[in-house]
Design a protein around this nucleic acid. Structure first.
Lengths: 126, 126
DNA sequence: TCTTGACTTGGAGTTCACTCCAGGTGGTAG
DNA sequence: CTACCACCTGGAGTGAACTCCAAGTCAAGA
């Protein structure tokens, strides 16, 4: 699969795909004999995985490290696992904070609801 | 309360506090007759609120709009409520996505666990 | 054969959200 | 009186994460 198709499939610009590859956020993509990238199944899985992890806010640094470890083969299995565990924990904390904040928004909305209710009462009295 | 103390209290740099005020992310803070900011209870509540909302990823744009509406008084109550409802929904979606991603990390970690288990078996066979 | 279009590269440019800086003011301590 | 300190302003600088650009290659179609 070529850039254009991958770009459309994952809604990442071609520039972003090249950028990710350049900084090592995805492993190097195979080229045909004209130097043009031909994404195979593995490449596509990486792109999708990285896009998902970035959307969830995982730091680029950590993901580059993960890709590096991956490319070093099986001797890095436990290091990769540790990295994922650490990132999972960070993600959990962020989610927890966001859930708190959502609760706070709920209360605020609730209060506005009451205010509006007062307004309605005022209106219905008039 | 002066900048230095507010800065320490909320762990926001003095530059950031001034920046937030400049772009309208918090309403103008009262000044003494030397032009120096004196944060009152209201100001502090705004700083804390904005810090919390920014940490949860609410867009600066939306928060500026919220502050603007607030400063226009009670006639904007329902607009403010709508804005909060919209942002709450966006936040909910982000959280949902992140929870999905966390689940995915869990599976991956689980798989690494199995891999290590295989390794251990290999080791124990040797 | 010429053009078109999808790709290549290295490097420059952009945006966001701060962060820093130079030059200045006012109040207090020695 | 001088020094110092915390604050002020407008504006420039920074780092992250893209995003754009110019110049070039290759293959397929008119």
């Amino acid at each position: 699969m070529r850039m254009a198709e991958v770009s459309a499939k994952f809604e990442l610009s071609q520039d972003t795909l090249r950028y990710y590859e350049r900084i090592g956020l995805i492993p190097p993509v195979n080229r045909n004999n004209n130097g043009i990238r031909e994404y195979n199944e593995d490449n596509l899985r990486w792109v999708e995985f990285i896009k998902c992890m970035r959307s969830a806010g995982l730091p680029i640094e950590a993901l580059i490290e993960y890709v590096n470890l991956f490319q070093q083969g099986d001797c890095t299995l436990s290091a990769r696992k540790d990295l994922l565990i650490e990132q999972r924990e960070q993600l959990r904390l962020r989610i927890e904070e966001m859930v708190q904040t959502m609760g706070r928004l709920d209360s605020k909305i609730e209060n506005y609801g009451q205010s509006l209710h007062e307004t309605e009462k005022a209106l219905s009295r008039s």
